[in-house]
């Protein structure tokens, strides 16, 4: 299969050369950071969603929400390490159905987060520890939880669905 123009460019960058040359230590390091980042995201946003859904009880959502900046930090850590992975082996991702679905889940999660802050956060942040959230807030956080689990699932299983060709 012919290499596409974008892939020729990606492979010509200094970052791509660096990843391929130093992969033996850089790859496991970035994987560890990527797992740490996903943990921060799931370990904050995930619990917040579970609380609004009513699965986890007895905590004010506003208190859990104070941890979310650490989840956002994890998200950006993963964007950064994700770029390292992509520039190292672009074809492993670009032609991988699991990666396509991962991007799709990320996009829906982002739009859904925007919806949450415009349509539900004002009601959720005043809830006391044992108060139930509105149906609307539950639907939105339910979608959030499913999307992030989708991102995690597609990412973790990505290498099982590598394209059969390597450049």
């Amino acid at each position: 299969m012919e290499m596409a123009a974008w892939e020729i460019w990606v492979r010509s960058t200094a970052l791509s050369h660096f990843v391929l040359k130093q992969g033996q230590w850089l790859w496991p390091l970035c994987e560890t950071l990527h797992f740490l980042g996903l943990s921060l995201l799931i370990g904050t946003v995930g619990y917040f969603d579970l609380r609004v859904l009513g699965v986890v009880k007895g905590m004010a959502p506003a208190e859990l929400h104070r941890l979310i900046p650490w989840g956002i930090a994890g998200y950006f850590l993963n964007l950064l390490t994700g770029v390292v992975f992509f520039f190292g082996y672009p074809e492993q991702y670009a032609y991988n159905t699991a990666f396509h679905f991962k991007l799709l889940f990320m996009t829906v999660a982002a739009a859904n987060a925007a919806l949450f802050y415009t349509a539900a956060f004002r009601d959720v942040r005043v809830l006391r520890a044992d108060q139930a959230a509105s149906p609307r807030a539950r639907v939105i956080t339910g979608i959030s939880l499913l999307c992030w689990i989708g991102v995690l699932t597609c990412g973790r299983l990505l290498t099982f669905y590598r394209p059969p060709f390597f450049h």
């Binding site: 740490l36 921060l40 370990g43 904050t44 689990i149 995690l152």
Partner: peptide, 15 residues
């Protein structure tokens, strides 16, 4: 196992 890691290690790390 990855989900458990995220909830356990991530929840602790955030605290």
């Amino acid at each position: 196992h990855t989900l458990g890691m995220g909830l356990l290690a991530g929840g602790n790390a955030a605290i």
